[in-house]
Structure formats: structure tokens, C-alpha cells
Design a protein around this nucleic acid. Structure first.
Lengths: 336, 336
DNA sequence: CGACATTATGACACCGGTGTCAAAGTACAT
DNA sequence: ATGTACTTTGACACCGGTGTCATAATGTCG
């Protein structure tokens, strides 16, 4: 079986390569008769244009890269799923590239990625979307990129995030409205801008409701389940024990719930627990976790969609958007 | 800033394109002096070969595609992580492509994928690795592929799986050894070959220990948490209630645990629960789930590695391997 | 030192498309 | 019939590499 290329199609149809190319790309100035004829040959020969050849000619790959370094599997898959949705809408494909934020390796690693696969653009997810160093590098490389879920101020690059501060504020307010005053807080990873945002949401809610902020109630996590387990120990060992715990994501909240249950504490009767993200685990455990739903897929979908628009027309205005986060109450929080 | 291509390098170094190409690919027959000179120019101009051009000339993309349709996020990320490990070892990249098994769309969808991105090979994960239709199609397309975690017999394609039947057998035996006789079973998705394997492992263990198989104790799930919740209801409503439940994966087991806890049943005192896969959730909940650890990353890593070897040398012998599954006991199972 | 093998190098076609531009064809007004 | 504008088409260069093959340079040996 011989390969079907634009040349064989042209020969078979009795027209020039260029005319075939015109039909292929729906370009104008092809007579209906010719177009018809070529299309028929496409079918007959089952012609499939070679994307690599096209890529070479147009200097495009129709591939978007997705960078991440995140312990949460569900977060990653949600990001991927949103990105894929946008990609497929525009006939792009998605290449995934997990790598580590830390170390001088990062820039080199990304450079390597760009070298080995001509990506048309890059989606950055936290913590990369917060890395000024990486952003600067990508600008020098002149490669389009979009940032997801980053609070970092940079109005020259596409950014879609959700309102972390607002979300944390609402959740804290929810706990306060249930009568809680000693509300412990588990912080996220220091490299994520969301970490500080969520923390200030918590602090501001306390402030506005006349509750004094107590540093002893704050534990430093890093978004991983493991760090949540450590923080849980620290918090549940406090005397007096706080009546509520607000963890910066659901995995850490799940870790608190696990330890609490192990210690025969009743949740929410003895202690209320809340998370952030509305990860699947939040509803896979009992009691279900009160949390803040962050529209991860939607953020990524929009970011990638805008990225692709930016790629096709670099003069497109830079898109920056903040989506709403939403409180979801489940069984893990209750009146004090 | 002008683009640095093989031509500019050649000109600058005062040699021909071809010589530059030789240096680039570490081909022999280049004098040390020339090689040195060209390498120096690479550095000076910061030359990066264009992978697309190379791809066109060699008819290769250095990209592997990964196909999946799986409700388990952790499974997907584990698959990806194993695949990436192998890819990066050989300087390949990974393109992900979730799609649905059902419907005539599948073949068309995959065909589309192959058309829009010249993949060098494809990794199939369940249920695709079990789809004879897809396998046949890929063979006609002459595109190399490797199957992960599939019990489907096909010794002409690369396959790495774990011993599902053995794993299920051991787990069931574990429950029996704890004194359980009424052991409910939740089956997985019908399209996965692992589903039947795990089921027969369960049945054989019962048989070999003189316990009569009782069809009423079997519920049909599909590996999703949701289906686990439905099956859990069915099983926990049985009278008398079984003393143990073996779910075909950890998500479904977690659903059983959740419902049991909701109903104030004590696990494992009132009922033992076990899963399969050793997904993260198995240790993120309390009590931790007794389960079977399946080396998902390792399976995928080996599969992709072999796939790449196959790509570089089609005469390579077809690799087929069965890895061991391992029993992990946690707190969710105990003496009857 | 000449005959011959071996190594080093470059010219050129090629991979399969797209972009540019000129030429040919067609429509319509004068 | 002729001029003009517009549509349709193809020739050819080009994207940035690799493969083939001829030729030039070097090494080896009697």
C-alpha cells in the first residue's frame, strides 16, 4: 500500500499540489467543480494530510504543553480535562509535562521541552503559574502561554483564576456562623500564590467578626495528604483543642478527618472540619467535607481557549478573568 | 533575533549542512577537528534543531499517545507517570487522549488522532487494551502499540499486566483465613478483562476452601465510586448481611465504607471491607483499606519502554510480561 | 612512489506540505 | 471587439532537517 500524499492526490485528480492544498484548507478561489473533484479523490484515496509536513511549512505543531508539579492527582486530571476540552475544540493536542519547580533545573528542563517538541503554547498550572522566573524565561523565548489559578499580578499574560480569598472568607464565615471561635488553619505550599490568598481570606473573616487571630492555631502544610497528617497531629494535640479546622485543600482536610476518627473524635460533633477545592475525596468519605468548589476545569478550559486564540492571532487582547468560588456544605461542619 | 537553523550553523562554521547533520546525530566519519568546530558553533549560536523538520525527514514525531477511558483519576495519573518515565528516558514526549470506548465513534476518533498528530506509537490502557476491534484497527494502520493491564490473549502485541486473578485469590483467601464465609463481591466494568479475572480469583478461592459460591452476594459495579455506592446499598441491605465485602477496586470499596459508616456499622468489627489497586484513597481514609497493590506505574513504564524499543527496531521480539500483585493489609479487615 | 582502501566532505534530491507570484481564464462594461 | 477587473490555476521556492552518492582527502602497503 503506497502512501497517499498531496502529490499523489494532485496527480490522480489532475490538478496541482497547490490546488489540493487550497481545497484542504478551505481557501477561496477554487471553482466548485474543481473543489468537488478534489474532495472526491480525498475520499477515494483516503487521503490524510501529514501534520508534520504542515507543521514544518507553517511553523506550527498544533500541540499545547501542560506544565504541572502538584501532589493532587484529582487536581491534575481536572486540569487536563479542561485543557483537553479546549484543545479538541480547536483541533489541538495536549502534551503533558510534569516537572519540579525547585532547582536551576526548571528553566533548563522547560527549554529542553521546547527544543524537543515545538509546542505552540504552554499552559502553566500552580506552582508554575506563579513563577516569575519561568514567566520571564518564556517571554524571552517568545512562546505564548496562559496561567491558571495564579494570583500573581502580570497583566501581559493570559490568566484565569478563581477567587481564593473570597472563597476562604466565605468558608471561614460559615464556620463562624456555626458558633466556632477557635478555628485552626492549615496553610498550603509556600510556592503557590493561592496559599496566601486563602490565608488572608481566613484572617479577614476572623477580623471582620471580631475574633482575634491566634498564630498557634496555624499549621504549615504543603497541599499533600502527608503534610495534612502532620498538621493534623499538631492541631489535634493543642489544648484546648480547636472546635474547627479549615485546611487549605481537601487532601489535608481528609488527613485531619482520618486522624480525628482514629482518635475516636466525632466529626462534626466534637470538631468541624473543612477543606478547599471540592476534590472527589470530599464526597468519597464520611462525613463528606464542607469545602469551596473551585472551577478547575472551567479555569483551564478558558485559559487554553484564550491561549489558542492568542496563538492564531497575537494581537488578541490579553484575557484575564477571575471566576467565582462556591461554598459547598456537607456533613463535616456543624454547630459548635 | 534571526532564527538559527542548520543552514546558518553550516554557513557560520564553514561546512556543509550535511556535516552539521552528522555532528548533530553523532554519526561517524567526521574528523575530530571538524566536529569540535561545529560543536563550538552550536554553543555560540545556541542552536536547537527543529524537531518538526527532523520529524518530516525521518517520518517520526517522537511522541507517544496514551489512550484511556477510566473513572479513576489516580489510575490515570499513575499510568501517565509510568509512561512519562519511559518516554523521557528516550527523549520522547507523551500526548494524552481520553476517549470513550463505546460507540462507533471510537475507531473514527482514534483515526482522527493519528491523522492530526503523527504519533510514533500508542499505549492502550484498560478498557482499550482489551478492545479487539481497536487492536485490529491499529494493526491495519500499521502503528506500533503496547497494551497495559489487559488479560486479552494476543501474543503479537506488547503487553504488560499484573496477575489480577492471583491477587483476587490471595485477598479472598485472606478474608477466609479471618473466618469470613459470607463474602460479598462487587464486580468491575464489563469491558475490562480484569473484571472477570478478579471475579474468578474470588470464586476459585471460595471453591478451594470449600465455601459455596452464592450469586446473591455478587453486585455489578463498573469501577466508579458511584457504582460502588449503588452496590454497597444492595449488599448492606442483604439479610443476613455478609460479614465481608470485596470490591473490585478501592473506589468502590471506599463507597462501601462510607455507607457502612453512615449506617453506624463499625468497620471492621461489624463488617470487613477490602478493595483492589492500592489507590491513594485506600490510605487516605479511616480505617485504611486492605487491598491488592497493582504496580500500575511499573506496568506502564515497561510497556512504553518496550514500545519505544519496538519503534526503533521493529524486529524486536514482542514483549509480554505478567507482574506480581501484592496483598496489603490495613485496618478495614479483621477476624469475624 | 604508485595502487588501493578508507575516511571525510559536500552537492543535491527528498520528506509533504504552504506561500508567492505570474499566467491563464472568465465576466462584464464600453 | 476590446479593455479592465476579478477569479482560478499552477510553477516554483521554501520550511529545516535527513539520505544517497560522488568526489576529495588521507592512510596503508608492497
Amino acid at each position: 500500500m503506497k502512501k497517499v500524499t498531496i502529490n499523489s492526490v494532485a496527480e490522480y485528480a489532475g490538478v496541482s499540489k497547490k490546488t489540493v492544498s487550497r481545497v484542504l484548507n478551505n481557501e477561496p478561489n477554487v471553482s466548485p467543480a474543481t473543489r468537488e473533484k478534489v474532495l472526491k479523490v480525498f475520499k477515494e484515496l483516503d487521503y490524510k494530510p501529514n501534520p508534520i509536513a504542515r507543521g514544518l511549512a507553517r511553523n506550527k505543531s498544533f500541540i499545547i504543553g501542560c506544565l504541572y508539579d502538584n501532589p493532587s492527582k484529582s487536581y491534575i486530571t481536572r486540569v487536563q480535562s479542561g485543557a483537553l476540552e479546549a484543545c479538541h475544540k480547536f483541533n489541538y493536542n495536549l502534551l503533558i509535562h510534569p516537572c519540579e519547580l525547585r532547582g536551576d533545573e526548571l528553566i533548563h528542563n522547560v527549554d529542553q521541552l521546547l527544543t524537543t517538541s515545538r509546542l505552540d503554547g504552554l499552559v502553566l498550572t500552580p506552582p508554575f503559574s506563579d513563577s516569575q522566573e519561568l514567566i520571564d524565561f518564556l517571554k524571552t523565548q517568545n512562546i505564548p502561554f496562559a496561567r491558571v489559578a495564579s494570583a500573581l499580578e502580570d497583566d501581559t499574560s493570559i490568566s484565569v483564576r478563581s477567587n481564593d480569598e473570597q472563597g476562604a472568607y466565605e468558608l471561614t464565615e460559615h464556620l463562624i456562623s456555626l458558633g466556632h471561635k477557635e478555628i485552626a488553619f492549615i496553610k498550603g505550599h509556600q510556592d503557590h500564590s493561592a496559599t496566601e490568598k486563602r490565608f488572608s481570606g481566613y484572617q479577614n473573616a476572623l477580623l471582620n467578626h471580631g475574633i482575634e487571630f491566634n498564630e498557634d492555631l496555624v499549621a504549615q502544610g504543603n497541599f499533600s495528604y502527608h503534610s495534612g497528617a502532620d498538621s493534623a497531629k499538631q492541631i489535634l494535640d493543642l489544648e484546648p483543642m480547636p472546635t474547627a479546622v479549615f485546611a487549605s485543600n481537601d487532601y489535608m482536610a481528609a488527613a485531619v478527618l482520618k486522624l480525628a476518627t482514629q482518635r475516636q473524635l466525632r466529626v462534626p460533633e466534637d470538631i468541624s472540619i473543612a477543606g478547599f477545592d471540592n476534590a472527589p475525596i470530599a464526597r468519597h468519605i464520611w462525613p463528606g467535607l464542607t469545602t469551596i468548589a473551585q472551577p478547575v476545569e472551567e479555569m483551564t478550559r478558558q485559559a487554553v481557549e484564550q491561549l489558542i486564540l492568542q496563538i492564531s492571532d497575537p494581537s488578541t487582547e490579553v484575557y484575564q478573568k477571575v471566576l467565582e468560588a462556591k461554598l459547598i456544605t456537607r456533613e463535616s461542619t456543624a454547630e459548635k
